[in-house]
Amino acid sequence: MSNTIIEAHNLTVLYGRKPALWNIDFELPDKQVIGIMGPNGSGKSTLLKAIMGVVEPTSGFTKVYDDELNNVRDKVSYVPQRQDIDWDFPANVWDIVAMGRYQKRGLFKKLTTEDNEIVTDSLEKVNMLGYAKRQISQLSGGQQQRVFLARAIAQQGDLFLMDEPFAGVDIATEEMIISLLKTMKDAGKTLVIVHHDLHTAESYFDHLVLLNTRLIASGPTSEVFTDKILTDTYGGRLTTISKISQELENKEFPIRHK
């Protein structure tokens, strides 16, 4: 039997007046590969950021391991969206993966031999050890994604939150990530992945969260991945919800009375 690893209660995140997430409630099981899906602008990344404490919820809250994130942060590894980053930064692959150890070592402590071994090991797991000294600006999209994965692995968490790891990567990298996910799941890790490709969803994920600003469904893939729910997520409701959001933003209505 699996336990609840992440829960969200009445989670609402507003950007200005516009809701990115609206009254989200769910519980996610541990030791599974979980997909977060929905159309563009449906709040997938925001959900991950809210769980990671990168954005502050306007109301509601999330819990990880039935606790506040700050108390269990060392168990959570994070892979932000690769496209949000300017890769023309003066650093090499090793420097970036070593950032995975900063959570443990903080801002001032030197990295130890053990840290270096962990970094080496993480690079090996994503087949990037040969690129350790490579400038990050010279990497392909797939290689950038591997570097971000290695950095998350170096954090040595039990729960991995990944923002669009499959976006714009080559087939070899996609296959590598998939086999890595399997290995990690077998090792008892929980993987939460923001994803947008419907074709692969069924084969990749054990559990799905379908979002369109509001939560459409959350449950085992076999139960949730139905035509009706997918239409609800990607079809008609999109226009209704986005029309309301537009009104809230343009006319500065409050989302609820306080």
Binding site: G53, D86, F89
Partner: peptide, 12 residues
């Protein structure tokens, strides 16, 4: 400078 979101994510 490189990745503000990640820095927040690891509790910096």
């Amino acid at each position: 400078s490189f990745d503000e979101n990640y820095a927040k994510g690891i509790g910096i």
